[in-house]
Nucleic acid binder design. Structure first.
Length: 468
RNA sequence: GUCCCUAUCGUCUAGAGGCCUAGGACAACACCCUUUCACGGUGUGAACCGGGGUUCGAAUCCCCGUGGGGACGCCA
């Protein structure tokens, strides 16, 4: 009988939820769901100077948009201060932690000097209590930090669920600060206490934490706490193969919403970035949860590929319900100041265009002429509306005007256009393209009879009359 | 500099020593469909980083290079 799976996502609220964080959250969430476990959200806000409530909200918004619901939390580390202080006091009493009075600037100089000598910068252990070793005299007026007394010698190792066995020599690890001069605990310590208290069984997190893991394991052991399993996910590189940063490519997941991506497309894309299930490319969230496992996660970094995301997005748009897409388009048009109520049923127009849009903004672009006045550019008119076309369209205008609203259907419209072609002695495109320009301000569109039908009699006649 | 991780088509990946003449997908290209543009369909090109081992046999295991990434904070 194994204990219930409990995973967590623990972002620090210093910015929005970006694509890398989103994938970490997704994998952590999926693992919990796969094993009927709990997914816990924890906000690591101990860096008071950089944490903001806006960032917390941005993270919550991103998670919600992606549909990654947590079972517990959000827990805020700042609200757990008494607990951290309690554990620090215990460690001090047990001798697994000690006070260090070395001022910050002196530590900085020390690191500087070590770097200059080509050594790995690390604390020299001057305040570390050792049997028979005399300690310096505590200076007046200096509030000490608390350091963890890391084991000397030996190795700390774990079997990473993604990368396999990883070993660190304990001599590589110096005595890290677990509480600052002002008494507030630091990251590596809070994580340990939280993962312990929250009963986390699998820590699934970014690759950049590999180096923190042996330290955390050592603190856990000093505390007599169970050590969870670890799974370190490699990072996501930008579209150009370079790493993502605030300056370069790292955007909020909400930006994908703004850019017209469906959340299920982003989820499917992210799921497939660094994880695979044979040749499967397109799958639902439910299918993903059913298949997900840590064994098939790639240990190496993956480059983000917008083209593939676009392909998935197009797929999901194509398969989305017209009513849902109409709603999305309406709100996007509203944001542009276009009133979607003003046109024919948006849904029938959506049905006409959903197979050709890569994202929702493109869909909105395509549908905008259906619900608002259009102004074909002079160039477009000059290019497509020659005398022959103008004469043919006048002819067509007569035929269309003779149709009643009840007769305004694809078959009749198609017949009218064909008759016009015959009578004017023109080929279909010679009539249809200028017609598109007058009706939609675009030379291309779906089948012209369908466009006429959806656009509606009044609008079609008005637009023709305006130009003829 | 030190430590840690990593390496299959342009990109995401399949691959657990013989199933590999290395499979799929995106992208590219070609053709078909379409009296427009897309969609769709069919097809083509495209990869095991280099060098040493181990083995009857290596994309798969080991070592060394090289490339890429990460970490080395009183940040998380």
């Amino acid at each position: 009988m194994t204990s219930k799976v409990r995973t967590r996502f623990a972002p620090s609220p210093t910015g929005f939820l970006h694509i890398g964080g989103a994938r970490t959250a997704l994998f952590s969430w999926a693992f919990a769901k796969r094993h009927q476990g709990d997914f816990i959200l924890r906000i690591e806000d101990t860096d008071v100077a950089r944490s903001t409530p806006e960032a917390v909200q941005a993270i919550l918004d991103g998670m919600q948009w992606l549909g990654l619901a947590h079972d517990e939390g959000p827990f805020y580390q700042m609200q757990r201060m008494p607990r951290y202080k309690e554990v620090i006091a215990q460690m001090l009493a047990a001798g697994t932690a000690y006070h260090c009075y070395t001022p910050a600037d002196e530590l900085e100089q020390m690191r500087e000097a070590q770097r200059a000598r080509g050594e790995k910068p690390r604390y020299d252990g001057r305040w570390r209590p050792e049997a028979g070793k005399p300690l310096p005299v505590a200076p007046e007026g200096v509030t000490p930090v608390v350091r963890f007394k890391n084991p000397a010698g030996g190795v700390t190792a774990w079997d990473d669920l993604v990368k396999g066995r990883i070993e660190f020599s304990n001599d590589e690890l110096d005595d890290l600060i677990i509480a600052r001069g002002d008494g507030t605990p630091t990251y590596n310590f809070c994580v340990v206490v939280d993962d312990w208290d929250m009963g986390i069984t699998q820590v699934i997190r970014g690759d950049d934490h590999v180096n923190n893991t042996p330290r955390q394991i050592n603190i856990l052991k000093a505390l007599g706490a169970p050590v969870p399993a670890y799974a370190h996910l490699s990072m996501i590189l930008g579209d150009d193969g370079t790493k993502l940063s605030k300056r370069h490519g790292a955007v909020s997941v909400m930006q994908y919403d703004d850019d017209g991506y469906l959340p299920e497309a982003v989820i499917n894309y992210l799921a497939r970035l660094g994880w695979s299930h044979g040749d499967e490319e397109i799958f639902s969230r439910e299918q993903f949860v059913e298949w997900f496992d840590l064994a098939h996660i790639t240990p190496s970094a993956a480059q983000f590929n917008t083209e593939k995301l676009n392909w998935l997005n197009q797929h999901y748009i194509k398969h989305a319900a017209d009513s849902r897409l109409a709603g999305e388009v309406a709100s996007r048009l509203a944001r542009r100041g276009v009133n979607p109520e003003a046109g024919p049923e948006l849904e029938s127009a959506v049905a006409l265009y959903k197979e050709r849009a890569v994202n929702l903004n493109e869909l909105a672009d395509a549908l905008e002429p259906f619900v608002t006045e259009i102004r074909p550019s002079v160039e477009l008119l000059a290019q497509h509306l020659n005398d022959a076309a103008r004469a043919a369209l006048k002819l067509l205008r007569g035929k269309l005007g003779a149709l009643s609203s009840a007769q305004w259907q694809k078959a009749a419209l198609s017949a009218a256009i064909k008759e016009t072609c015959t009578e004017a002695g023109l080929k279909m495109p010679q009539v249809a393209i200028p017609l598109r320009v007058l009706l939609l301000a675009q030379p291309q569109s779906p089948a012209i009879d369908a466009v006429l039908e959806v656009l509606g009699r009044d609008r079609v006649l008005a637009r023709l009359d305006h130009h003829l």
